[in-house]
């Protein structure tokens, strides 16, 4: 042990009293039980203070995500965008899947919006189409190491493709499996078989090596903010999957507006969210089929 170690051993010696008597040689003496001189004491306190401030800052930033009472964009101020999917009306035609693939120019193997079929729960096939849930407490947003996925001001969960490093922790964290990855280079190819039958691409293909997911067609919602059109009412600013649905099983709009298509669709129906127990507060509500289970109409 050399003399340079004295700074670190001094505080230890102070905290853990040792049985040996302190050497009587004065403040420059070395040894485990030596007293601190003033300069060392000031340095120690300053070091502790700086560490505590840094730790406090990190801790408060950490907790900012965790307050259960604090919603990212609560019901009340501004629009509360939700999607409502009526499981009774859905016939499993997959048109929303195709329209999404065309509009957002996704790969057919890595779609943003997919169809899942439940054959058992209700005695007859129930078709569940699954976009991104745009959770208020989104696990993907919480885990992204570079904050490349984030809540924008209106609460939608967005991706910054220029920042994403492609670590795929968001894909591990997403409880709904909505996230897909750009395993391949697609930027220069024109191979989207859903174009032009089911729509035209409205956004650029994403670069190789980044994660992506459904955006609720955020480019259209942005257009709504610019033009004053209302998503859910005006087709130009409503997500492509909602527009194309032949049975009106999918609706989109502002839940804070009691007259919006989503508010009206939910009236009198039993709505569920997927994996509610996780506390993610999804913005996609599923309306349960009424007939078989005898729920109130």
């Amino acid at each position: 042990m050399s003399e340079h170690t004295k700074d670190e051993h001094a505080p230890q010696g102070e905290q853990i009293p040792q049985s040996e008597p302190a050497p009587s040689g004065g403040p420059t003496q070395q040894g485990p039980t030596r007293e601190l001189d003033r300069r060392e004491f000031v340095r120690l306190i300053a070091g502790l203070g700086i560490s505590a401030a840094a730790a406090g800052w990190v801790w408060s930033a950490f907790l900012a995500h965790n307050d259960p009472a604090e919603e990212v964009n609560g019901h009340g101020e501004g629009p509360y965008w939700v999607m409502v999917i009526d499981l009774e009306a859905c016939i499993g035609c997959e048109r929303c899947v195709y329209a999404c693939q065309a509009t957002n120019d996704t790969d057919s193997e890595h779609r943003w919006n997919i169809l899942l079929t439940d054959e058992e729960t209700f005695g007859q096939p129930v078709f569940i189409t699954r976009p991104c849930m745009h959770c208020e407490h989104a696990p993907c947003v919480e885990v992204c190491p570079v904050a490349a996925t984030y809540h924008r001001e209106d609460g939608l969960v967005m991706m910054d493709y220029q920042r994403c490093i492609g670590c795929r922790y968001c894909m591990v964290a997403c409880p709904y499996g909505v996230r897909v990855f750009n395993w391949d280079d697609r930027e220069d190819e024109t191979d989207n078989e859903m174009v032009p039958t089911w729509g035209t691409p409205e956004i650029n293909r994403r670069p190789r090596g980044v994660a992506e997911k459904c955006t609720f067609c955020s480019q259209r919602i942005d257009l709504a903010y610019e033009t004053g059109l209302r998503p859910g009412y005006d087709r130009a600013v409503t997500p492509a999957c909602v527009n194309i649905c032949p049975t009106e099983a999918r609706r989109f709009g502002d839940l804070n507006d009691p007259e919006s298509p989503v508010s009206r669709a939910m009236k009198g129906r039993q709505a569920v969210v997927l994996r509610e127990n996780l506390g993610t507060h999804p913005r996609v509500y599923y309306l349960l089929p009424e007939a078989e289970e005898g729920e109130e109409a």
């Binding site: 995500h65 885990v143 570079v146 490349a148 395993w183 670069p207």
Partner: peptide, 26 residues
């Protein structure tokens, strides 16, 4: 090798999400 964008490996040091375990690990 694992990250999809090795050219952006330095983003972890520049863009912070202190809530992320991976940020802390980085």
């Amino acid at each position: 090798f694992d990250i999809g964008r090795p050219d952006r490996f330095w983003h972890g040091w520049v863009f912070w999400n202190v809530h992320s375990m991976l940020w802390e690990v980085t």
